[in-house]
């Protein structure tokens, strides 16, 4: 179970970059620019190695 948690935690990671600009004169203007880059990395515990080797069609 511990391995599952570790796996799911590492599956999808997103690199989020944002830029914020604020103009304080009335009315205040807030510019928020967000860009999300998804990177897929999978890290598998040794305990699961055997399971994946038996089912190579996972990926």
């Amino acid at each position: 179970m511990r391995s599952l948690l570790l796996l799911s935690a590492l599956l999808s990671l997103g690199a989020c970059t944002h830029r914020v600009q604020v103009e304080t004169k009335e009315p205040i203007t807030i510019n928020l620019n967000v860009k999300v880059d998804h990177e897929i990395r999978v890290k598998v515990d040794k305990e699961l190695d055997s399971l994946f080797s038996e089912d190579s069609e996972l990926f």
Partner: peptide
């Protein structure tokens, strides 16, 4: 306060 929120 009036607010203009521009979001991309």
């Amino acid at each position: 306060q009036d607010v203009n929120f521009n979001y991309t």
